[in-house]
């Protein structure tokens, strides 16, 4: 409410509460750190402009609303860069990579995980983030990205393959 009135303290409080989390979300979607920071600030500004349209729906709903704005902005950037060549690395990627177990993955640093996610091609990165981390369905993802459900499923499968390979390399000591 105070933000909608242009209360500067409320606006600063909004930044204090959500900027860091938003920044990490943005870093998962865009590769460049500066671009992620720019995306985060753009999201907060836009959220403040549209704060009058927000409806409270319980604890955490404000962050969910703001993060949805951030995701939409990030996906817009991904769509603009869709001309990037799609990798066909999985043509020769080993398809029989065993699923990592919980104990193996638990000790992997977050920085490494973020690095692996950022290495994914734009589309796979977007789909993986939306499906595995942000909890969207393939139907919703297909609408958000302008692709088919099959395309979303396929991109997720390729992203999983690529990340499993990174995990294996890390666990085998090849990527420390």
């Amino acid at each position: 409410m105070y933000c909608s009135r242009g209360d500067r303290m409320a606006e600063n409080e909004l930044y204090r509460r959500y900027a860091v989390r938003l920044n990490m979300l943005c870093k998962r979607y865009v590769v460049d750190d500066d671009e992620a920071k720019d995306l985060m600030l753009e999201t907060l500004i836009k959220a403040l402009e549209k704060i009058g349209t927000y409806e409270y729906r319980g604890n955490g709903s404000l962050y969910s609303w703001i993060s949805r704005i951030a995701i939409n902005n990030a996906l817009n950037r991904i769509r603009r860069n869709r001309g990037r060549i799609v990798s066909l690395e999985d043509l020769w990627m080993n398809d029989n990579i065993p699923e990592p177990i919980e104990d193996e993955v638990a000790n992997i640093p977050e920085e490494k995980i973020l690095e692996w996610i950022s290495r994914l091609p734009d589309l796979r990165r977007g789909v993986f983030n939306l499906y595995c981390i942000d909890g969207y369905s393939h139907q919703e993802i297909s609408q958000m990205l302008g692709i088919s459900v099959t395309g979303s499923t396929s991109a997720l499968a390729k992203a999983r393959k690529q990340l499993k390979k990174e995990i294996r390399r890390y666990l085998n000591g090849q990527d420390k």
Binding site: V20, E99, I101, E102, E110
Partner: peptide, 19 residues
């Protein structure tokens, strides 16, 4: 047992770097 993607999700949601 948790799937590795779920572990990734938990780690990413809890991961913060100061600005």
């Amino acid at each position: 047992m948790k799937k590795w993607e779920d572990i990734f999700k938990d780690k990413m949601e809890g991961f913060e770097e100061p600005l």
